[in-house]
Simulated scan of single mutants.
Amino acid sequence: MASQSQGIQQLLQAEKRAKDKLEEAKKRKNKRLKQAKEEATAEIDQYKIKRETDFRHIQTSIMGSQGNLSVKIEEQTSEKIHSYGGNYQKYKEQVLKEVLNYVYDIKPEIHINYHTDE
């Protein structure tokens, strides 16, 4: 009976060691899964930052060229406005004289549709 009791004790100890090893393996597995998840998250974050940086760089280069176009258009518009203002000052007197000449130089004529019933 003592040998049976000793055999049972050995089996119980072996079962306990197996259970401890299993728990230890589960802890290592969970620890490794957490570590893998953290590494994946860090890698995703780095990739996301890189893509956002690339996007901003491309956006800046495109918007920068559009900004340059906007500046050029504003300069051209300003030049045209200045030119028109100069032409206005230059030709104002001449045009005003011509308009006044048309108003003052009245040549009375009979309208072509006017018929006398004679």
Rank of each mutant, 00 (worst) to 15 (best):
L22T: 10
L22H: 12
E23C: 01
E24M: 05
A25C: 00
A25S: 02
A25P: 02
K26E: 02
K26T: 00
K26N: 01
K27S: 04
K27W: 00
K27A: 04
K27V: 04
K27C: 00
R28E: 04
R28W: 00
R28K: 07
K29I: 04
K29D: 10
N30F: 09
N30L: 12
N30H: 10
N30A: 13
N30Q: 15
N30D: 14
N30T: 09
K31S: 15
K31M: 05
K31D: 13
K31I: 05
K31Y: 06
K31E: 15
K31Q: 14
R32V: 05
L33Y: 05
L33G: 03
L33P: 00
L33K: 07
K34Y: 08
K34P: 01
Q35L: 11
Q35W: 06
A36M: 05
A36Q: 06
A36E: 10
K37F: 11
K37C: 07
K37I: 12
K37W: 09
E38H: 10
E38P: 03
E38A: 11
E38C: 01
E39N: 05
A40P: 00
T41Y: 08
T41C: 07
T41K: 10
A42Q: 08
A42K: 09
A42Y: 04
A42N: 05
A42F: 02
E43R: 07
I44D: 14
I44W: 10
I44Q: 15
I44M: 11
I44G: 08
I44P: 06
D45Y: 08
D45N: 12
D45M: 06
D45E: 14
D45P: 04
D45R: 10
D45T: 10
Q46W: 12
Q46I: 07
Y47M: 11
K48H: 11
K48E: 08
I49Y: 11
I49S: 14
I49M: 14
I49L: 15
K50I: 09
K50L: 10
K50D: 14
R51P: 01
R51Y: 08
R51L: 10
R51A: 12
R51C: 08
E52P: 01
T53K: 11
T53Y: 03
T53N: 11
T53W: 02
T53Q: 10
D54W: 00
D54R: 01
F55S: 04
F55H: 05
R56H: 13
R56P: 00
R56D: 09
R56V: 07
R56E: 09
H57D: 14
H57V: 07
I58D: 12
I58P: 01
I58S: 13
I58E: 14
Q59D: 10
Q59P: 03
Q59T: 05
Q59M: 02
Q59R: 09
T60D: 15
T60C: 09
